[in-house]
Design a protein around this nucleic acid. Structure first.
Length: 195
DNA sequence: CGGGTTTGACCAGCGC
DNA sequence: GCGCTGGTCAAACCCG
């Protein structure tokens, strides 16, 4: 299995601040926004969704809809990766959050199943699985090796259920650009060099 | 007692 | 083939 990825989505831009910045907000008042603008050609795999929030209460649900919910001010970049070489396409979203907290409540319930020290990083990487039965979503959490003030969270997979504590906005318009598909070959640059 | 965490062992992929 | 590395397993442990 190759470790290369094709990445897309990733509009590198700033989004408006949460109009209701004082936490905690009840779920129905969370500010939310789709981040489905065309990605720039210069987007790099190393880019992360960067969320300048002290505490992230985010919900990532992809595809077909990527909805980000948070209860603090925001300014972020994001990326989405699609693994090309698996029988079933894995959906991966990684983002970097400036936070003192290792564990941030994203609305889902997670069970830790592993911890591993990573090469060239003083910080361990923690592995979590979604606790909901039948849901195979995983996430990895580690502190940024270059700036330990940031936590890098990587989600693998798509939840097959709704968040137990965050309202899911089914009425949100679906605005999927051509690049936002599961077809890795549709991404014209930064394609995998493997396989 | 049930569910979550810890942690060493194990396994697979990759490069040399 | 071998060693390194990242990811997962599972038994032991912890805690409410």
């Amino acid at each position: 299995m190759s470790t290369s990825y094709s990445s897309f989505l990733a509009p590198v831009m700033d989004y408006p601040a949460n109009p209701n910045p004082n936490p905690p907000l009840p779920p129905h008042q969370h500010f939310h926004q789709n981040i489905l603008d065309p990605f720039p050609a210069e987007f790099q795999l190393s880019d992360y969704l960067m969320l300048d929030a002290d505490i992230l209460m985010g919900l990532l649900m992809i595809p077909p809809r990527l909805s980000i919910v948070w209860s603090h001010r925001s300014s972020f970049k994001c990326k989405k990766e699609v693994k090309k070489d698996k029988a079933e396409v894995a959906h991966r979203v990684a983002f970097r959050t400036k936070s003192d907290l290792e564990i941030m409540d994203d609305g889902f319930k997670w069970r830790k199943y592993g911890k591993k020290s990573v090469k060239n990083s003083p910080n361990p990487r923690n592995y979590y699985k979604c606790s909901t039965g039948g849901c195979n979503v995983k996430k990895r959490v580690e502190r940024d090796r270059e700036d330990s003030r940031y936590v890098i969270t990587t989600y693998d997979g798509v939840h097959n259920h709704e968040s137990p504590c965050v309202v899911y906005y089914n009425q949100m318009p679906l605005m999927v650009p051509d690049g936002w598909t599961l077809q890795a070959s549709s991404f014209p640059h930064h394609s995998s060099s493997s396989s």
